[in-house]
């Protein structure tokens, strides 16, 4: 009995139960979200603007604190372990200009490991590795705000990869990218081993990357299941403001 309990704790990366959240101005952004994601799963989060996708992602590392339970790798998220949880969940914002706040690319990628108190060698190693993983080696000394959007988005991902998270939560990583940058980013995401929850409007990409799709609308999860099955349900997608082609 005990053994199975431990197994579920490790196998479940994210477990959210009845999560509700209202913004200070009274907008109810989440109205009771239940979601369980197994370790290693790749999940697409789709839904119209204002559905609550970003709000949900911001809950995964405690940036926003709503009512309800959130367990990350078996640990109930609370005020005390928030910083611990943040080493597990790599959250990447939609706008890389929000994510990148340091003067150089390298500083930004090294911020997480430095904050963790790792040794100099370890920080250097992790930053280099992270930049290599996203294919941005050699840009260390560049100023982030002078790079192309595609480059910025990759570097934003590198800034959390350097923290060796087990879960990646990416908010609209494909928005405003041109087709070739999108394809490159798609290839990158395919190579990453982490558990992934990715919000996107890009239905065609979902098919290639994510076996499971969660549809949100108006603060609720309205569909959750096999990507092919959900994408085949045009009536469902149309009701929630999405297009297949």
């Amino acid at each position: 009995m005990r053994a199975t309990k431990v197994r579920t704790a490790v196998d479940t990366a994210i477990r959210i139960a009845n999560l509700r959240f209202a913004y200070p101005d009274g907008v109810q952004a989440l109205r009771g979200v239940d979601l369980t994601i197994a370790a290693g799963e790749k999940v697409a989060l789709v839904g119209p603007n204002g559905a609550g996708k970003t709000t949900l992602l911001l809950h995964l590392n405690g940036t926003l604190r709503g009512k309800g339970d959130i367990r990350i790798m078996g640990h109930l998220l609370n005020g005390g372990n928030m910083k611990r949880v943040r080493s597990q969940v790599g959250l990447v914002f939609e706008n890389p200009d929000d994510q990148l706040f340091s003067p150089t690319v390298f500083d930004d990628v090294a911020f997480g490991p430095l904050y963790m108190g790792l040794s100099r060698e370890e920080v250097l190693k992790r930053a280099r590795l992270a930049l290599e993983e996203v294919g941005m080696t050699g840009l260390d000394e560049r100023l982030p705000h002078h790079l192309s959007l595609g480059q910025k988005k990759r570097i934003a991902i590198a800034t959390v990869l350097s923290m060796s998270p087990t879960i990646l939560a990416l908010d609209e990583p494909f928005s405003s990218l041109d087709p070739s940058a999108r394809r490159e980013l798609m290839n990158l995401l395919q190579t990453l081993p982490q558990t992934m929850i990715v919000s996107t409007h890009h239905i065609p990409l979902i098919r290639h990357l994510f076996p499971r799709t969660v549809v949100m609308d108006d603060g609720c999860i309205v569909a959750d299941g096999d990507t092919e099955a959900i994408l085949a349900d045009t009536a469902l997608l149309e009701t929630h403001g999405l297009e297949v082609s």
């Binding site: 940036t63 910083k83 914002f93 706008n95 994510q99 990148l100 911020f111 997480g112 904050y115 963790m116």
Partner: peptide, 13 residues
Amino acid sequence: RLLRARDCRSAEL
């Protein structure tokens, strides 16, 4: 948003 991005990556081991 900048502060939030910093806090998100201020993790502890």
